[in-house]
């Protein structure tokens, strides 16, 4: 497969997504949630661990934008806009944590778990390469989580723990606001980047790596 057509790339990404999302459900923390056995401690641990990755989101997108040269000027604008919408996200997550009785200091001082370290290092490594459009593969996985999983998790956590909407707002917000991102994603794929030799293949590979590292991050909760 040479992945020169956007549909070929999308098809490959959807297969990676299906594998990823079904394996995600088998991880202990998510399995617990699906079985209705989530505790408030579990939610706090999830937020604490997740925050350490989310806080870097705006940064790696900004780094990627700065690696895009002027031939792809329009796409650079898109990366920058995307960065602005993402880079305040972790504030909402922190508020959710505080609303559960945690302190701002605790969550802000939190350490990255070993999976988050690996994921983060990979993202910054790729974002530092010239024209790192393969990161669209990473975005597909991460945005997919927002669009397809966050809402379901947010509602389950709210209902299981008897919380208010504003205590799970980070998860619910992503489910409500990531819709447009997928259309932008398809536009980006069709913008001509697939004419760059090997780019389709690179997008698919980066998606696979990010999916694997994301699973690692959730599997290695609290392993510092």
């Amino acid at each position: 497969m040479d992945y020169t057509k956007s549909q070929d790339v999308l098809r490959a990404l959807l297969q990676i997504w299906a594998d990823f999302s079904s394996r995600l459900d088998a991880l202990p923390l998510i399995d617990k949630l699906n079985r209705g056995k989530f505790r408030i401690e579990d939610y706090k641990i999830l937020l604490m661990n997740h925050r350490q990755q989310v806080v870097e989101g705006g940064r790696w997108i900004a780094r990627a934008a700065s690696s895009i040269d002027d031939r792809y000027f329009e796409l650079r604008s898109k990366f920058m806009t995307h960065c602005v919408t993402e880079h305040r996200d972790f504030r909402m997550l922190e508020q959710n944590y505080v609303s559960l009785g945690g302190t701002m200091e605790e969550i802000q001082k939190g350490e990255k778990n070993i999976g988050t370290e690996a994921l983060n290092a990979f993202m910054f490594h790729r974002a530092s390469q010239p024209n790192p459009f393969d990161l669209l593969g990473a975005m597909f996985i991460i945005e997919g989580l927002g669009q397809n999983k966050a809402g379901e998790w947010g509602r389950m956590i709210r209902d299981q723990l008897g919380l208010k909407d504003e205590q799970v707002s980070f998860l619910l917000y992503h489910a409500d606001h990531d819709d447009g991102h997928m259309d932008e994603f398809e536009e980006a794929l069709k913008s001509g980047i697939l004419e760059i030799p090997g780019m389709g293949q690179a997008i698919v590979k980066t998606a696979k790596i990010v999916a694997r590292l994301y699973l690692l991050q959730i599997d290695e909760i609290d392993n510092f």
Partner: peptide, 20 residues
């Protein structure tokens, strides 16, 4: 039924792999 809905992407993925 909630679990069933989580299976749909996996079934679609099987179909996509046969196309590939």
């Amino acid at each position: 039924f909630a679990l069933l809905k989580r299976m749909i992407p996996v079934w679609v993925s099987h179909y996509l792999s046969l196309i590939d």
